[in-house]
Nucleic acid binder design. Structure first.
Lengths: 243, 243
DNA sequence: TTTTATATCTTGTTTAAACATGTTATGTCT
DNA sequence: AGACATAACATGTTTAAACAAGATATAAAA
């Protein structure tokens, strides 16, 4: 249930693009046309369109119009630019997710861990190791570090399902922002064991480190995701900015 | 030279955040305050701030204010979410770039290449292989495919410098949008040779495939970038969107 | 026929104002 | 001192209007 007009317009146009109601490479209806269709102001239409631009769905051309440049993405693809839980991503792709909790413990950050995670020293954190399966294939090992004071009542059972769902729906926490860094690293024995890898086959893997903030501006999560290289697939949309 | 007010405000605030004039984790001056400072309307201020949000520099909190959450990034890091040429990226980090053209040729796309690049079959394309050095270390092998009709007058000499600079400054082409897909692939003999890699050390690497559109909505470039794994470092900022 | 204005379409920028909603400090009442 | 309404202030949404600037078709002039 969209709470704002521009959001419902955004979703409607997005759906029309995905369903080819607005064909690929063609121009969308002009702003004036959309204003009449949705019976709203120009700003509201423009706001919806600007989100589609950010999504890489359309391209605006001054004096010409707005062109649909959307191409359907690969099934197994993760989407960058937006925060999505493993479960959400799997459901979006119509696949079956399963999560196995390898470790669930509480620790204090020492100097080394503090430097790596970005949490202050001596912070109480929840350290969780999880193995994510997609259609029964082990794909990702996640090392989650949650600031304990931000995730009260977090249990192993919740970690097996979806932590984000718990945070948002139970604790009513709003996740807003996540800085992610992608690198390639050598595989460890743990990776080899759980992801059923063979070092002679692949001896390195994709690693995504993310620092996530809640709506209070507190970094409450640091996560290192270690992805099976043959399944790793991230998509991003970049926009060229002036100057 | 910013052509719009909101852009100059955006740059000014951005600079103040980067230089710690607005301290980390503190609130920025309120909208009303900024309106007075810059002597402009509220919308213009909000537009500047919304770009900072997209950059992951700040976080807005309804009823509270706008918090600075900017953290300086690693030197060698490439930035996602915006299109940057190798030369620009190097200069931003104060490093010395050098480009070696390995191959410069013109071909027609057959069925196989058409499927991989996304160009229509039998398109006339410019195929360029380039090796990018940073501080004399070979980091990236680029396989560029340019739609020939979009890049008239492209020469080997230009390819050694900066193709994007040529496209923008000489041909006055505007690059707007780029879809990028990141994967991990096995290294080839070419990679091993030019990037001075050892298959016993690293047997796979980061691969970024990108589809780039110009301001006419034409996909004029397909590029596969093969990155040396030990130097590969991409950064992204994700924003959680409602519903 | 070709060129040249011109009108008219498109998106881009900016301002002003009103109302909604979330947060916090203030003051009053118990 | 503690509870509670309230005023003040923060960002969020929406409308309306005006002007700028790029693209294009149309009509007038060469």
């Amino acid at each position: 249930m969209p709470k704002s007009i521009y959001e419902s317009i955004y979703k409607d146009i997005k759906q029309k693009i995905e369903s080819d109601t607005f064909p690929y490479q063609e121009l969308l209806p002009s702003e004036n046309n959309l204003i009449q269709r949705y019976n709203c102001s120009r700003n509201t239409v423009r706001r919806a369109i600007s989100r589609l631009v950010a999504d890489g769905y359309v391209q605006t051309m001054q004096g010409k119009g707005v062109r649909n440049i959307y191409r359907p993405i690969d099934q197994t693809s993760f989407t960058l630019g937006e925060i999505e839980s493993f479960k959400e991503s799997a459901q979006r792709n119509g696949q079956h997710p399963r999560t196995e909790v390898l470790l669930f413990t509480e620790i204090k950050t020492d100097e080394k861990l503090s430097r790596r995670t970005g949490f202050p020293e001596d912070s109480e954190v929840c350290y969780i190791q999880r193995l994510h399966y997609l259609d029964e294939v082990p794909l990702i090992i996640n090392h989650n570090y949650f600031l304990k004071e931000c995730v009260p009542g977090l249990t192993r059972e919740i970690a097996e399902n979806s932590i984000y769902q718990y945070l948002e729906q139970e604790l009513h926490m709003t996740i807003v922002n996540s800085r992610r860094i992608m690198t390639v690293e050598k595989i460890t024995e743990i990776d080899e064991k759980y992801l059923e890898l063979n070092a002679e086959d692949y001896n390195c893997m994709a690693v995504v480190s993310s620092y996530t903030y809640n709506s209070n501006g507190i970094m409450f999560e640091y996560t290192q995701s270690r992805h099976r290289p043959d399944y790793f697939h991230f998509q991003d949309n970049a926009v060229r900015k002036p100057g």
